[in-house]
Amino acid sequence: MSPGGGDPPGWLRELQRDFTAVLRAPLDSGTGRFEERQALYPARLVAQLRSGTGGPAPAERLALYHRQYWMRLFTALQTSFPRVSRAMSCWHFNHLAALHLAERPPRHADLDEAARGFAERLHRALERLEDAGPRRPPERPPHGDAWCRRIELSRAPLAMVRQARCMDEAERHAYESPFEGLWRPTPEELARLALGEPRLRFAESCTLAQEDWDLARFSRLAAADQDEGAPAPIRRHPSTRTWVFARSATGTTTTSVDPLFARLLDRCRELPFGQALAAVEQGCTAAEAAQLRASLQGWIALALASGWWTGLAGAEPRAQESPNDDPGRA
């Protein structure tokens, strides 16, 4: 047998080109739902379809593939961006997804890869909107940029969309990161920490994200259960919350942390532990300082048990695998 089976017949390429054109043609949303326009299907392709006796017409049969193509990709992007799609509503989000997919059609066998690059495009659109100043009143002409116009049409607060994007990206980053094990500091390392000298090394997967609207409850891992028919309202919290996204041994974790601990974690990214602690203390009220002192050991234990730190900067990574890691704290 000859490997590859020789060259394909010439007609196959033409047929697949026309079929591809049908699949990739954007669905029309003018009627308030995404629908195909069968009249625009290439006549050359439709003529090659057998009509048969009874049953749907050839173009209607072709339309099943067309709709399926877009709905599968919309679902894939909603799964990757569960918070953005909820913040904007799936209707407006799907328009952005269509723009993204037109600019960057999927080329990887893994469907999840179709979402690659979407976050950057959304980020740039949000920047353009912010550069343009406050939201336009409804009577003003819409933004000329399709991404910006669609975000505006969603009427979602820009800050909420921005936070949703950051949280979705943090979750994706955790999902794509390796689990580096749990670090159990030696007495020598604890002594160095007590002196405040070294910086802590954070796990690659570990990201802090702020939340002013209740977006954390959405997750790429639970997206299948979130159906557009029953959208729960997204409420604004009385105060900002901070979440830590990270990898565990068995999955990803999303953990709410106290605002003081969030500040400490943030400072620890750049400063040695002792300096970070001092910087946070300096900004504390007396009550907060007391809380910091009372809670510090527990917070450190949480960070170690969750694998957010993997060792001291400048030392060899010493994190160790633990089968008893506790996933899914949310």
Binding site: M1, G5, P9, Q16, R17, F19, L23, P105, A114
Partner: peptide, 29 residues
Amino acid sequence: AFEGVTHHDLLPAPHDPELIPYAAGRAFE
């Protein structure tokens, strides 16, 4: 897929005998 773009769907080709050796050769590969 076509020209490097993946469709994430299982798409039909004609049941034309001309395709049989082509498909068989690729399956063998």
